[in-house]
Nucleic acid binder design. Sequence first.
DNA 1: GCAATGACTGGTA
DNA 2: TTACCAGCCATTG
Length: 109
Amino acid sequence: MDTEERERYVEDVLSLVERIPPGRVMSYGAIADHVGRCGPRRVGNVLATDGGGVPWWRVVRTDGSLPPSHERRALEHYRVEGTALRGRAVGDAGATRVDMARAAWSPAS
DNA sequence: GCAATGACTGGTA
DNA sequence: TTACCAGCCATTG
C-alpha cells in the first residue's frame, strides 16, 4: 500500500470516528465495513497510531468490550458523556462493557 | 520474501 | 458467561 493510500485511509477512519455523536459508539468491524478497505485489525492499528486527535473511546469491539489497554480511560469518558453501559456496578471497571443495543451508531443514521 | 505481531471477529467448547 | 481457535490484513523486522 502506498503512503498516499494509507494516509487517505487513516483520514477516512478518523473523520468517521469524529462524526460519532457523544454517548454513541461504533465497532471496529462497522468502521472497516463502512470505509470498505481491509479489515478491522487495520482500523485498530490506525487508531493506535493516529487516533490521538479523535474520540477513540467511541470505538469498541462488536461485543461492546473496550480496548484492553485503555478501558479505564474510556470508562471515564463514558461516564461523562452518559454512554449506555451494562454489566457490573458503577465505578467498577472489571467486566464493564458498552450496551451496544442502545449505544451502537451508524453514519447512515 | 517470510514470520511475527496487533486497540479484531465469529464460531465452538 | 468465559476461553480458545482459526481467519483476516497491513505493518515491521
